[in-house]
Design a protein around this nucleic acid. Structure first.
Length: 582
DNA sequence: TAGAATCGCCAC
DNA sequence: AAACGTGGCGATTCTA
């Protein structure tokens, strides 16, 4: 494939002229080749810059960081538009190795994800995206080749082609986004790319000694419970081996546990927590089993494995974020997932501020209820959310026609169950199970709830019905989820109703949260403070001790103004603390 | 024997 | 206490 017209730049003196040419372009495509995936442990080898006429490949082994100054303005200003496929990756390397922060990004990867609108079958690597939107094959063979040595003609061809293909791809994707009314959602995503890359680069600090202590305590408890359980369970084991001790059952195997329980006369379809929980009071062995499960889960998911993610260069943990991690647009983090650390002090407090620094922890209060209030414009719900008393207590007061101070804990729990459950499209059966009441009682509670919040009832009904009718839903930013379910199948129709209620709410929560990340990243620019974690409705900022007090109000103000862009009618509150530990 | 599927459970 | 939305991940078990 030598038909690609590109030039390899090894002479730093060429960069000023190149920068001049690029500045005049409306759009340029960019790509990088690196010696590995981790910007802290690998090197930037090539930077490819493509315009309709020309492709330039800069060999970053030959052109040192200090020579990139002329390109800085081109790459770090909104114009020209920079097209990249998964710009978060390239952005991290440019940030780390050249000190340049990309701006004006059009990301063909995120564009493809938005256009697929939640499809589980579409793939979004450059190769399948080029195939899908341009109808041409693209070989990615050289991607995993060794980029640290002498480069072959084939490698350079590959590098050039990867960048060049982005130009026609951009044209098509931009038109498709426009046709599908996804340009607003796309801009929201594109603006958020570098802020998310910054969160990854910042990483979190972990108090290793404290974490190890927690593991040790867990291990001890785990072994004790394991011994007790083997005794409990062997009592029912009749098939004692003729040749000695019976084979101990594997407590991590649900199948073996179920068999053992059957021998004790406890028959179950499965052994999930919800099922076991109601039996825990009756059978001590079940309570112990649940305790064992919890300890085993914590040891395997939140044990030594987390320590392996500490980066040897920074000494911190840098998770990977997927910017569109779910069809609703939520961010997800992995390797490790810092979004599912148990919400208990033993675990969370291990994520601490390093010496001389503070953590600012801020989360939106009842954000999904506020979104529901915005969508439904239910006056009673809007009032209940307007400062003052606890939402669930107020909800109960309205449901039962009582004063807020007359509400019992049980009534508050019922109201809380409804406030949370209805957002997820829960029905009477689900509520009955959750509150441990009969289905008839649950129906009555739902009826009272809908009388308290009539426009909420109306909105939920309409949203469910619309999902059945049109098979799709949008969020406030216009993000689209096409459900791809069969509305004539009763089970799938029920799912459609639930999704139709939940998707706009959860998705709008993602929208405004991403906006908050973008605005906050900008507001913190130039200060010794940066976002280190994001958990769906909560942001953690790490700041120098001396400035934390000044930064805290900026965090809450910025989060509130981001939410206001999407929720003009409903009051928004942010709970914030400044602390040494998460 | 490695990858897929399943179960189970952590988060919001 | 658990069937009601979104994920990631670990251990076991199945399968090609």
């Amino acid at each position: 494939m030598s038909d690609i017209d590109y030039r390899l730049i090894v002479d730093p003196d060429e960069l000023p002229a190149l920068a001049g040419e690029l500045r005049a372009e409306p759009v340029i495509a960019i790509d990088t080749e690196t010696t590995g995936l981790d910007p802290y442990r690998s090197r930037l080898r090539l930077l490819q810059l493509a315009t309709p006429g020309k492709i330039r490949i800069i060999d970053c082994f030959r052109v040192g960081r200090e020579h990139f100054e002329p390109l800085r303005a081109v790459l770090s200003s909104p114009k020209p538009v920079k097209i990249a496929h998964n710009a978060r990756f390239d952005g991290r390397f440019l940030c780390c190795h050249l000190g340049i922060r990309l701006d004006g990004i059009f990301d063909t990867y995120l564009a493809s994800l938005l256009l697929s609108a939640g499809s589980e079958v579409d793939r979004h690597g450059l190769e399948p995206v080029v195939q899908r939107y341009l109808g041409r094959p693209l070989s990615k063979e050289a991607q995993l080749s060794d980029w640290s040595g002498e480069l072959s003609r084939a490698q350079l061809d590959y590098a050039a082609r990867d960048a060049a293909i982005l130009l026609p791809l951009y044209e098509v994707l931009r038109d498709r986004l426009d046709e599908m009314d996804l340009l607003v959602a796309a801009d929201l995503e594109f603006d958020c790319i570098m802020p998310v890359a910054s969160i990854e680069l910042a990483g979190v600090h972990l108090d290793i000694a404290r974490w190890r202590e927690q593991i040790a305590r867990n291990r001890e408890a785990h072994e004790r419970v394991e011994r007790e359980l083997h005794q409990d369970l062997s009592a029912g084991a009749s098939q004692m081996s003729l040749f000695g001790a019976p084979e101990p059952i594997n407590l991590d195997s649900p199948a073996q546990v179920r068999e053992a329980l059957t021998r004790l006369g406890i028959e179950l379809d499965d052994t999930r927590e919800g099922r076991l929980h109601s039996l825990a009071g009756q059978y001590p062995v079940i309570a112990r089993l649940l305790e064992h499960r919890h300890l085993a889960k914590c040891l395997s998911s939140f044990g030594e494995n987390i320590l392996e993610f500490i980066n040897p260069v920074t000494g911190r943990i840098h998770p990977d974020y997927r910017q569109i991690g779910s069809p609703t647009g939520r961010l997800t983090s992995s390797s490790p997932s810092l979004q599912q650390i148990p919400h208990t002090p033993e675990y969370r407090s291990c994520f601490s501020a390093p010496a001389g620094r503070k953590l600012i922890i801020a989360d939106y209060s009842q954000i999904e209820m506020r979104i529901l209030a915005e969508f439904s414009r239910d006056e009673a719900l809007l009032t209940a959310l307007d400062g003052g008393a606890d939402l669930h207590r107020q909800t109960a007061a309205r449901m039962f026609g009582l004063q807020v101070n007359q509400i019992t804990d049980r009534q508050r729990e019922s109201a809380k169950g409804l406030n949370y459950g209805l957002i997820y499209g829960m029905g009477a059966e689900g509520l009955a199970a959750r509150l441990d009441v009969s289905v008839v009682e649950a129906r009555g509670l739902i009826e009272r709830y809908f009388e308290a919040y009539p426009r909420v009832a109306r909105w939920l009904e309409d949203a469910g019905e619309e999902a059945v009718q049109v098979g799709r839903a949008r969020t406030a930013s216009g993000r689209l989820w096409i459900f791809r379910l069969d509305p004539t199948d009763p089970a799938q129709q029920a799912t459609l109703r639930r999704l139709g209620r939940n998707a706009p709410i959860q998705g709008t929560s993602s929208d405004l949260f991403k906006r908050a990340i973008t605005l906050l990243d900008e507001a913190l620019g130039g200060r010794d403070a940066f976002i280190v974690n994001s958990i769906h409705d909560e942001l953690v900022v790490e700041a120098a001790e001396a400035v934390a007090g000044d930064i805290a109000p900026i965090v809450s103000r910025t989060m509130i103004s981001a939410a206001r862009e999407f929720l003009p009618c409903v009051p928004v509150e942010v709970d914030l603390i400044v602390a040494d530990h998460w």
